[in-house]
């Protein structure tokens, strides 16, 4: 590599060093201030860009959910249960446990999503339990954990909020998922 010759680039002069009259420190201060301002401006500018980028990538609010009609109270007798699929494809089990609809827990709606890591549980009739194939989790008919990691962590199947409006049983379901998109093409 050749050094560029001085006559093209111009001589480098270190002006600061050659000032004997005290303007050196003032100049030093100004240069310092300029440097700090420059760095601050760059940081603020690019920082803003990064913050916007992160907020862009973070998911925006989507449909929070809604109350959905399940059945009339007479459709579900004490001791009975029925499957329910939300528009977004989440599968629930809704069961009636008491005669008096006003009683606490007369109705329960259990999610089929395993509270451990989100796989789908299924009802094993012969074992009378919900089984999760991902890490061998199991739950009883009330959704209480009886085996596997959910048992170790004491996680039950999620209960969906239910509401009785007159003679109608309503369930709160969260917003849209992927299954709508897929089911269109999943023939």
């Amino acid at each position: 590599m050749q050094e560029p010759s001085g006559d093209i680039r111009g001589e480098r002069t270190d002006a600061v060093e050659s000032r004997p009259d005290g303007s050196e420190s003032r100049r030093g201060f100004l240069e310092h201030a300029a440097g700090v301002t420059m760095a601050g401006g760059l940081t603020a500018g690019y920082g803003m860009l990064v913050s916007h980028a992160v907020r862009f990538l973070y998911p925006s609010e989507t449909d929070p959910g809604s109350w959905q009609f399940v059945c009339t109270l007479d459709d579900l007798q004490p001791g009975d249960s029925m499957p329910f699929t939300t528009p977004a494809g989440a599968k629930l089990v809704v069961a009636r446990q008491a005669e008096d609809p006003a009683q606490d827990d007369a109705f329960i709606a259990l999610s089929s999503v395993c509270p451990h890591l989100g796989c789908k549980v299924h009802w094993e009739a012969n074992n009378e339990r919900f089984f999760c194939p991902c890490h061998n989790g199991a739950f009883d008919a009330q959704g209480n954990p009886i085996a596997g990691p959910p048992k170790a962590a004491g996680q039950s199947l999620t209960r969906f909020p239910l509401r009785i409006e007159g003679n109608l049983l309503m369930v709160w379901v969260p917003g849209t998922g992927i299954s709508e998109v897929i089911s269109e093409t999943n023939a």
Binding site: T85, C119, P133, C134, S179, I182
Partner: peptide, 12 residues
């Protein structure tokens, strides 16, 4: 088999 959000396969 194609992804199916409604069914977790038996062996995963």
């Amino acid at each position: 088999p194609r992804a199916n959000p409604l069914v977790t396969p038996e062996v995963i």
